[in-house]
Computed example of a mutant assay.
Amino acid sequence: MIVLPRLRRMDVTASSEQTEISMAKIDLDSLSIEELAALRDHASDKLAEKVAARQSELEAELDKLAQYGKSVKKSQATPVAKPKKDDLPKSELSADVSRAA
């Protein structure tokens, strides 16, 4: 298990939210590859947790709002893109051309 070095805390004011956020100042140049990879993994995991929690909050809020009026559409899955002509096998391209003629 790789242990990340102790981090110095500093206060940063987020201008868009006007709240104080306690952030760690990290000297990335001093970290080894393993430490950087562990930091990246930890940050990715924490981000995924926060996104999932916020998504749950928003879905709960949408459910509450739905009782007051029109039902609210939840986003649907991303549509599948049609393949480009370049991606189609030549046999399908020749079939398309013969149908068009």
Rank of each mutant, 00 (worst) to 15 (best):
M1G: 13
M1H: 10
V3W: 00
V3R: 08
V3F: 00
L4I: 00
P5G: 01
R6Q: 01
D11G: 07
D11P: 08
D11Y: 05
V12Y: 09
V12E: 04
V12A: 09
V12Q: 08
T13Q: 11
T13A: 11
A14R: 13
A14F: 10
S16P: 04
E17N: 12
Q18I: 00
Q18N: 07
T19G: 00
E20Q: 09
E20Y: 06
I21P: 02
S22N: 09
A24L: 13
K25M: 05
K25G: 03
I26N: 05
I26S: 05
D29I: 00
S30T: 07
L31Y: 10
S32W: 03
E35N: 02
L39Y: 09
R40M: 12
D45F: 07
K46W: 03
K50S: 04
K50T: 05
A52I: 01
Q55R: 11
E57Y: 01
L58S: 00
E59D: 07
E61L: 03
L62N: 00
L62I: 00
D63V: 06
D63N: 07
L65Q: 13
Y68V: 15
G69L: 12
S71K: 15
V72G: 03
V72S: 04
K73T: 06
K74W: 04
K74A: 10
K74C: 03
K74V: 11
S75L: 10
S75C: 06
T78E: 06
V80H: 15
A81C: 05
A81G: 07
K82G: 08
K82A: 12
K84V: 09
K85E: 05
K85L: 11
D87M: 13
L88F: 09
P89K: 09
K90D: 04
K90R: 01
K90H: 04
K90C: 02
D96E: 01
V97K: 08
V97L: 07
A101F: 10
A101D: 03
A101E: 06
